[in-house]
Amino acid sequence: MGEFRRVPAMEDPYEYVERCPWKIACEPFRVAPHVWYVSGNTWVGAYLIDTGDGLILIDTFEVRALYLLTEAVRKAGFDPGEIKLILLSHGHADHCGGLKALQEMTKAKVYMSKEDYEVKKTHFDRVFFRPDGQDFEPDGFYSDQKTIELGTIRIRTKLCPGHTPGTTSFFFWDEDGEGKRYLCGMHGGAGTGFLSDEYLDDYGYPRWFRQRFVDDCKEMASWPVDICLASHPNMTNFLSGVNWEDPSDYQGFVDRGAWRNFMLERAEDAERLGRGETRAR
């Protein structure tokens, strides 16, 4: 396996995506019994779930570097054509930019939050940021009262407004061949950079988004998540869990404390932001 590369903190990751995406490329690796990290890059996460009855993909990365994702799926031993469901965590181009191309290629059903769909309809630029974004239509919307089901997997969604109005988090149980179960959790948008007064005011979003973000993080911190899936690997030092000698070994990601600590850290960061004591991350 090749050595993975992080995006330097002071550099714009979009520059890598647009000009030289291979500089942030990484091989796929397993993070749970039936879950693989397949974004093909070290900046934004995307997860492939083998349900036994087709594949679920969470997030799609950017269209310019979509080849990294499709190659990662193949290298992990799967056929991108077997993707039956695509779930979007939130409406930002780095997480949904490749959606239209994948939707056309796989004919998968697409789900997202109704809230971010409305943003996409009325403020297209807030989702895609650039004029070349490829629009898409979802097949359905999330409901916190209804699980998304395929094969052996039942995914519970939780609306977590803040990063975007419709940011959605995902939770599901995965079981190994010996019957041991792991609760996997992914916060759909944990970056607090979109929670400043200035940003919220500029976009016309209510300032209570920030307190809702804090409350949701504190609530979810108590949930017994065994494997914390990172939407952006640098937020949790996620890549340190990879066993590059054996990328199918997911034990480095089994850590219930990691989820709790991440949620509480995110809540604290947002609270400090509200008090003007820190820069959002």
Rank of each mutant, 00 (worst) to 15 (best):
E3L: 02
F4C: 14
V7G: 01
Y16P: 03
Y16H: 07
V17W: 04
C20T: 12
I24C: 02
E27W: 01
P28H: 02
V31M: 12
A32E: 08
W36K: 02
W36F: 08
V38S: 03
G40K: 00
N41P: 10
L48Y: 11
T51V: 02
D53A: 14
L55Q: 03
L55H: 03
I56V: 13
I58F: 00
T60E: 01
A65R: 04
L68W: 01
T70M: 03
K75Y: 01
F78R: 04
E82G: 02
L88M: 09
H90A: 14
H90G: 13
G91R: 00
H92I: 08
H95G: 05
G98T: 08
K100V: 06
M105Q: 15
Y111I: 07
M112T: 03
Y117N: 11
K121E: 12
F129L: 07
F129R: 07
R130Y: 10
P131K: 09
F136Q: 01
P138H: 10
I148H: 00
G151L: 04
G151E: 03
I155L: 04
T157P: 12
K158C: 07
P165K: 06
T168A: 01
D176F: 05
E178N: 11
G179I: 11
K180L: 03
R181E: 00
G188L: 10
G188D: 05
G188T: 09
G189K: 04
G193Q: 08
F194Q: 01
L195Q: 08
D197W: 07
E198D: 11
L200P: 10
D201P: 00
Y203E: 10
G204C: 08
W208C: 01
R212Q: 15
C217S: 13
W223G: 06
W223Y: 12
C228W: 11
H232P: 01
H232G: 02
N237P: 01
L239H: 10
L239A: 09
G241T: 11
N243E: 04
W244A: 15
P247V: 15
P247A: 13
P247C: 13
P247S: 12
Y250G: 09
G252V: 09
W259S: 14
F262W: 15
M263S: 12
L264Y: 12
R266Y: 06
A270S: 03
G274M: 13
R279P: 00
R281W: 06
